[in-house]
């Protein structure tokens, strides 16, 4: 089919526009990566674009010796791994009964849960509740209050409801109880959607910030994102040495760039592998009943 002149113009514009905007999504990170491998002087004078100038590993060597940073890394790894596992367990256990026709409380509980999406509790009573539970300055404050994301729960429930019921009729005849039905039949069938919500939870925990702002006064428990912000506010803490006094192969600019990369790369590395799953998952969650 012949294309009109206008359509050709539009196609050219469209490809160019999308390329340019897509580039802005990745360039800032690549630039920070380049800065983190550059020497202080070119970094200071903003000469670094996409490739390191006067390549050095000094910044990374210094950064990776920072015990405070590793401590925060450990906290973040803990809340991401333990938090995601616990969240998956709670979400699966909640979504399954809510997907069963024979469960009489299905509808009232579902309504009660959706109500909490519309009426979000204000920040202060939420803060006071968590405090009353004795979770202040506890690592569990970063996990327990966010165990179930209603959005993820609904994604999983929608998926469970789509599994044909002849499967569980057959299982029941074989004397399969509800727990076995869930863990041995439903979950293996739900791997893609479990991968999706697992990723959503992991990203949430990895990037968790507000919970740390609200509930952690004790700096030793700060997760990575909170530590990152602390470093932004006082770069001296990050450098950990008197930069003016000596001749170092790093400065606060290269250190800051390296810290951002350090706090970002692990989660960004996982995501292309799971991309094919999460698109499906995100769509499932939006289905109207």
């Amino acid at each position: 089919m012949k294309k009109s002149w206008g359509e050709k113009c539009f196609q050219i514009f469209n490809y160019t526009f999308l390329t340019v905007v897509a580039a802005t999504m990745i360039l800032p990170l690549l630039q920070l990566l380049a800065v983190s491998f550059s020497s202080p002087i070119p970094a200071e004078s903003k000469k670094v674009f996409l490739f390191p100038v006067e390549f050095t590993l000094g910044t990374w060597k210094h950064l990776l010796q920072n015990e405070v940073l590793w401590r925060s890394f450990g906290v973040t790894i803990f809340i991401t791994v333990v938090g995601t596992l616990l969240s998956m367990l709670f979400t699966v256990l909640t979504a399954f009964p809510l997907s069963r026709k024979e469960f009489l409380l299905k509808k009232p509980i579902m309504i009660a849960i959706v109500v909490t999406m519309i009426f979000n509790a204000p920040m202060i009573p939420y803060f006071l509740t968590v405090r009353e539970l004795g979770l202040m300055d506890s690592i569990w404050a970063l996990i327990i209050p966010g165990l179930i994301s209603t959005f993820n729960m609904i994604i999983l429930r929608t998926f469970f409801m789509g599994i044909p019921s002849d499967i569980d009729d057959a299982a029941r005849i074989d004397g399969c109880n509800d727990f076995r039905l869930l863990f041995q039949i439903y979950l293996p069938l739900s791997k893609p959607v479990l991968a999706t919500i697992g990723l959503f939870y992991a990203v949430g925990y990895w990037n968790s910030f507000q919970a740390a702002v609200l509930f952690l006064r004790d700096q030793t428990l700060w997760p990575l994102q909170m530590r990152l912000r602390g470093f932004f506010e006082s770069p001296e803490a990050l450098a950990d040495v008197n930069l003016v006094m000596g001749d170092y192969d790093f400065n606060t600019i290269t250190l800051k760039a390296a810290t951002i990369i350090f706090a970002t790369v692990p989660i960004v590395l996982v995501y292309p592998f799971l991309q094919k799953y999460f698109v499906k998952g995100a769509v499932l969650g939006s289905l109207k009943e």
Binding site: A22, L29, W206, Q225, L228, F232, A263, I267, V268, Y271
Partner: peptide
Amino acid sequence: LFYLPHFLSWVVVGGI
């Protein structure tokens, strides 16, 4: 590429 920024925290985006 367009999905990527969704996975960054606001602390990181703020820094950028």
